[in-house]
């Protein structure tokens, strides 16, 4: 087991170093930066939905919250190190409170989806209506529909005159993504992650075994929100403006589409889905023949109908079927298959 963890980390590092080095040769770093941010956002939902079994329709709320927190804090503080940290903590606490309310109420899947959707909408409506000068936090005006422009962007810690932008911001985001990816890997290997997957598979059984499902789901939800908040803060730096559009339903929809297309239950799937579809959106933005929203909707419908598992799991099973190396997980897979057969019979 120990050896395989090491191999996993080393493989991740090698692949990511090659990608970080090679991709700027093909695509501009300005685009790559936002793709890395999207990938991180996709990973955050992939973690709580694919491994935690929590279908959150409002991941954009935490993304937007991170971005706004960063912008407001940066204006008030005037440098970027502390605001970055606050921008991770605020969505995390917000999600913990929201999650505690939902999970301790033992709400079902559908209600969870609706509540997260409604909360996103509340934030969107509220922020959208804050155009007046009455809405200020410290020195920062919330700006309503126009958003907040002109906040200090990332600087080297302790040196407020050295800004990180352009290529440097790309490398920073890419490294952050790799670190988050490794963090997620570690989390899923830990006993917390294994129990979370167990809760996804059978919540009643896990709670009968004696695990407190409510607190575990709440913590998982908060971790996902913290990652989304970090992505939001980086996004604020990339765009140099934050607008209420970050909280919008279409933003939430996009994150879900990334996860579905890439493949749930994998770490790499949502990442690939986010970067791939993000790039597709970028390419489509350069022409006006095909409507972007229409195509995204079509992709989602087609994937739900024909490939609900997503690209990465499908590719893995095709690879395994053709190349066929005996799997380490074969036993667990067979047991799960038997269990499913028993359930269908009974």
């Amino acid at each position: 087991m120990q050896g395989s963890v090491g191999r996993d980390v080393i493989a991740t590092l090698i692949v990511s170093v090659i990608l970080i080095w090679a991709l700027p040769l093909m695509v501009g770093t300005y685009t790559l930066t936002v793709l890395a941010i999207y990938a991180m956002l996709g990973l955050s939902l992939g973690l709580i939905w694919g491994f935690g079994g929590i279908l959150c329709f409002g991941q954009a709320a935490f993304f937007g919250l991170g971005a706004y927190t960063y912008a407001i804090a940066a204006i008030n503080i005037g440098e970027s190190t502390l605001p970055m940290i606050i921008a991770v903590i605020v969505p995390c606490i917000f999600a913990a409170l929201l999650g505690a309310m939902m999970f301790y109420g033992r709400l079902g899947d559908v209600y969870l989806g609706v509540i997260t959707l409604v909360v996103t909408l509340i934030l969107f409506k509220f922020v959208n209506s804050t155009a007046g000068p009455a809405y200020t936090i410290g020195n920062a005006r919330l700006g309503g529909y126009n958003g907040i422009p002109g906040f200090p962007t990332l600087n080297v810690p302790g040196r407020t005159d050295l800004y990180i932008w352009g290529d440097a911001l790309y490398y920073l985001c890419a490294v952050a993504l790799v670190l988050v990816y490794l963090g997620v890997t570690w989390l899923l290997r830990s006993s917390f992650g294994r129990i979370a997957v167990g809760i996804r598979e059978n919540e009643t059984r896990m709670s009968l075994i004696g695990y407190d499902v409510r607190i575990r789901k709440t913590v998982m939800f908060a971790i996902g929100a913290a990652i989304a908040g970090l992505a939001g803060a980086l996004y604020a730096n990339w765009g140099a403006i934050v607008t209420p559009g970050l909280f919008s339903l279409s933003q939430s929809a996009e994150i879900i589409i990334w996860c579905i297309v890439g493949g749930l239950g994998t770490r790499f799937g949502p990442l690939l889905g986010a970067a791939g579809l993000g790039y597709l959106k970028f390419l489509l933005g350069q022409q006006s023949m095909i409507n972007n929203t229409m195509l995204m909707g079509l992709i989602l419908v087609l994937f739900v109908l024909f490939l609900p598992r997503g690209v990465v799991p499908a590719a893995i099973s095709v690879w395994r079927a053709s190349v066929g190396r005996p799997r380490r997980t074969g036993r667990a897979r067979a047991m799960r298959r038997n269990r499913r057969r028993d359930r269908d019979d009974g």
């Binding site: 899947d109 929809a253 972007n292 229409m294 195509l295 909707g297 079509l298 419908v301 739900v304």
Partner: peptide, 27 residues
């Protein structure tokens, strides 16, 4: 029709449809 009884999948597919219709109406 293909998704009766699959609550979450219908939710996702109809969300896709909603985006699709928004796109078409825009066009």
């Amino acid at each position: 029709r293909h998704l009766y009884g699959r609550l979450v999948d219908t939710m996702l597919a109809t969300w896709g449809l909603s985006l699709f219709f928004i796109g078409i109406a825009t066009v």
